[in-house]
Write a protein that binds this DNA or RNA. Structure first.
Length: 629
DNA sequence: TACATACAC
DNA sequence: AATGGTGTATGTA
């Protein structure tokens, strides 16, 4: 790779900075110097283990995709497409019948919440580029921030002030509650409401109701909020993004309008479809929700992998419309973790483990939980993540014990070079459970907490049934237990064809045996660690938390791709995020490596195929050695 | 039960 | 210059 040409970059850099920083910066072309930009990006991310790991993960997905395609082609050989399609059509018809347009669901989403709170408290920031978050942390993707910092010396970094955000969050949520006492917060800056009763009682149109609500929020907090109005949560969520900065969007409550809306919608917009699923769906020809229909036969054949019913509902724009607060004190786990610069000394590592233990104990005590399974998590300097767990025969919550168990789990893994360590406790017991006689006193002190066992009196519209699983997560589609059997009229094929996916060669973590005492089986010379790639959860530069911002713009040009965007900073940042996303950077690297000055290709990024990988194995290699033993 | 993966905010 | 933290669901063995 290029050694580097130190300084000469300053001029281009300058313009990048201006664009990053300034609304007023002209829209002079910048595209012409794409190769230069590529070089800058390349350099900024050069030799990063992080990217190496990302690449490895990407490659794995590519392999998975190949396998999927093989399966598909295999089953297509014997499948009766027509027949499958008509049974899917039938399924779709059945789903359509269940469509419920009676509830008015709203998704509210604060605009650039952290950044705007900071701005509110410090007006001097107006017009200046700033980022919220510890040095290098937060919304704009890391790479964006990292590069931005490099490029923009003027960038102001503000520390997060969570208590302050929480304070504002409460005010906002309080307002939302006036419109739906059962509203469901989703994080500190967004939430779902069912305003059907409110609109009825006040004889108000949904849009007016939401506008009024947003105005109230602004009046009382000086913060802006965007909202989406639709017949279910998934649609509402997607709609809230439509007129993002300080706007709202209502989808027409008609099947045809909804289907039209879904038709061209990128599948990626669907909550639950992340980076990996996007790629896999893309592989079978699904880029938009409309494509689902076109590929319904394939989806049926791959039901186990993608979920036929889920996709059909998505295609139709049907999802849960049940909004309920998180009565879910049904916590499943509680944990703490910490990232630090790579450490390899046991002492230092155990020191970190102590910190984590202390923090976790505190958290568990404050929230009143104890548990029986302790899971240790650690991330190597290569960014591979591993977990080790142990179940205990009694309730755990004390730091000493958390530490001891963590240590026990970690010890067999040495030697290690890690950059993160964490502990998580599962199999929880709620010390504050009302029916538990052992906590009379405690309850007295903290009873005020909401929790009225909210009766799910409500309607019993089918959605309700599934709803239990809802708020837990994606929950926009109640997971239909109904494993739709393409029930053909004459029991044949399909059903069986659906599962054909096993074998997946999961790679194995550092130690094949590790804490496996009884190892028994074989003490073979397992090459031990390294070959597996687990994956750090992909960091996505979502908007919401802190923001790399240049306030005050209405039209800006993306410094990376030069696309002119008429959007607020938040959206611009999201876009920049995208432009600086992993694949973009890798692409830039590839281009640079080739020393080619090819014309800029343009955004909708192209797929990152294995070819790209032809990079000299120089530095890369897994990291075998790691130890013998 | 243990572990890995994917996703969300 | 060193790419977050917390939590849930799910698949596999």
């Amino acid at each position: 790779m290029p050694a580097e040409d130190g300084l000469k970059r300053s001029q281009e850099t300058e313009s990048l900075v201006k664009r990053l920083a300034g609304p007023s910066s002209g829209k002079a072309g910048l595209a012409k110097d794409q190769s230069e930009i590529n070089r800058i990006i390349t350099e900024a991310s050069k030799g990063s283990k992080f990217y190496d790991n990302e690449k490895k993960k990407d490659k794995e997905v590519t392999v998975r995709i190949e396998k999927i395609l093989k399966e598909r082609d295999e089953s297509l050989k014997t499948a009766d497409i027509r027949k499958i399609e008509s049974s899917v059509d039938q399924l779709i018809a059945e789903l359509e019948v269940q469509r419920d347009l009676t509830q008015i669901i709203v998704h509210v989403d604060m605009d650039a919440f952290y950044a705007n709170v900071e701005l509110l408290d410090n007006p001097k920031l107006h017009g200046k580029p700033f980022a919220v978050g510890k040095g290098v942390l937060s919304t704009a993707s890391y790479e964006a921030r990292f590069i931005a910092k490099k490029l923009c010396p003027d960038l102001i970094f503000l520390p997060n002030r969570f208590s302050r955000y929480l304070e504002m969050s409460k005010k906002i949520m309080d307002i939302f509650h006036r419109y739906d006492p059962d509203m469901c917060p989703a994080g500190c800056d967004e939430g779902y409401l069912n305003i059907t009763p409110y609109c009825e009682e006040h004889s108000m149109a949904a849009e007016d109701c939401v506008r009024e609500m947003r105005e109230t929020v602004f009046r009382e907090t000086q913060l802006t909020v965007s909202a989406g109005i639709a017949p279910n949560k998934m649609l509402a969520k997607i709609c809230s993004d439509k007129n993002k900065p300080n706007g709202q969007f209502q989808l027409e409550f008609k099947p045809e309008a909804i289907k039209a809306f879904m038709h061209d919608l990128s599948i990626r917009k669907v909550p639950g479809i992340g980076r990996v699923n996007e790629r896999m769906l893309d592989a079978i020809g699904i880029k938009t929700c409309g494509d689902i229909y076109q590929q319904r036969a394939v989806v049926t054949l791959m039901d186990k992998r993608f979920g036929l019913v889920f996709l059909c509902r998505t295609y139709l724009g049907i999802a849960s419309n049940v909004v309920q607060p998180h009565e879910r004190e049904e916590r499943k786990s509680i944990g703490a973790e910490r990232t630090f610069s790579t450490l390899d000394s046991k002492e230092k590592i155990f020191e970190k483990l102590t910190e984590v233990s202390v923090e976790l104990e505190k958290d568990m005590e404050e929230t009143g939980w104890v548990g029986r399974t302790v899971t240790l998590k650690f991330k190597l300097d290569t960014y591979q993540v591993f977990t080790r767990a142990k179940s205990i025969d009694h309730w755990v919550s004390k730091k000493e014990e958390l530490f001891a168990i963590g240590k026990e789990l970690l010890l067999p893994e040495f030697p290690l070079k890690i950059r993160l360590i964490g502990l998580r406790v599962t199999k929880l017991k709620d010390l504050r459970a009302k029916d538990d006689p052992t906590n009379g006193i405690k309850r007295f002190f903290q009873s005020s907490k909401e929790n009225e066992p909210r009766k799910k009196a409500k309607l019993e519209d089918d959605a309700d049934l599934h709803d239990v699983m809802e708020d837990a997560m994606p929950g926009f589609h109640e997971h239909d237990e109904t494993d739709y059997q393409v029930d053909d009229n004459d029991g044949d094929d399909i059903v069986e064809i659906t599962n054909m996916d096993k074998d997946v060669t999961r790679s194995r973590p550092p130690h094949s045996t590790s804490n496996a005492q009884a190892s028994s089986s074989k003490l073979e010379s397992v090459p031990a660690r390294a070959r597996s790639t687990s994956a750090a959860p992909r960091l996505r530069g979502d908007k919401g938390k802190s923001i790399l911002t240049s306030i005050k713009a209405s039209t800006q040009e993306c410094p990376i791709c030069s696309k002119v965007l008429e959007i607020d900073n938040d959206s611009l940042n999201a876009h920049i995020d995208f432009c600086l996303s992993r694949s973009a950077i890798m692409e830039a690297q590839v281009e640079t490596n080739k020393l080619v000055k090819k014309p800029y290709v343009g955004w909708p990024r192209q797929e990152f195929s294995r070819k790209v990988d032809t990079k000299p194995p120089s530095s890369r290699g897994r990291q075998p050695s790691k130890r013998g033993r």
